[in-house]
Amino acid sequence: MTDFFVLAISCIFVNNILLAQFLGNCPFLGTSKKMETAVGMSMAVVFVLVMAGIITWMTDTYLLKPLNIEFLRTLSFILVIASLVQFVEMFLKKSIPGLYAGLGIFLPLITTNCAVMGACLINIKEEYTFLQAVVASFTYAIGFGLALVLFAGLRERINIARVPQPLQDTSLGLVTAGIIALSFYAFKGMV
C-alpha cells in the first residue's frame, strides 16, 4: 500500500507530467487562458488517460510482447488512443450528454496530447505491473489537472495586469510556468 502512495506522490508532484517531464505542453498553454477551459481539459485528460493507460498496457503485454513486435508500439499505441478517444466521444454523446457537453471540444484534442501517449509509454518503460500502471496513469492525470488549473488561475490574474508589449501572452505565460515549475521542484527531495 505504501508503495502505491509513494508512486502517487511521485507522479503528482515530483515527476509532474507537465512541469518536470514536459509532456502535454501545447494544451497547457492553449487551454489555460480561462479557468473553465482548463477545468474541462483536465477532466477530459483524467478520463481518457486512465482508460488509455489500461488499454495500452494490455495491448503491450498481451499482444505486442508475445508476438515479438514491440517495434510497432508507437503505431499501435497512437491507433489505440485515437480510436479510444473517438469511442469515448460517441459513448458520452449517447449516454451522458451532460458530461459530453462539459468536455465537448477537448475530447478530440486529446488524441494529439502527448501527455496521454507519454504516460502510456512511461508505464511500459518503467515496467509497471497492471495495478501500478493504473495508479500511475490516474495520478499523472491528476498532476496534469493540478498544474493546469493553478496555471490558469495565475494567467487569469495576469491578463488584467499591464504587461510590456513584447512580453505579452505566451512569453509571460512561459515565464510564469517556469516559476510554477520551480515551486514544484521543492518536492524533489520527498521521494
Binding site: 518536470a20 514536459f22 505566451t170 509571460l172 512561459l174 515565464v175 510556468a177 517556469g178 515549475a181 521542484y185
Partner: peptide, 10 residues
C-alpha cells in the same frame, strides 16, 4: 526543468 520554461519565454 524550470529554466527551460523561463529561457524559452525570454
Amino acid at each position: 526543468a524550470p529554466g527551460a520554461f523561463v529561457c524559452l519565454g525570454l
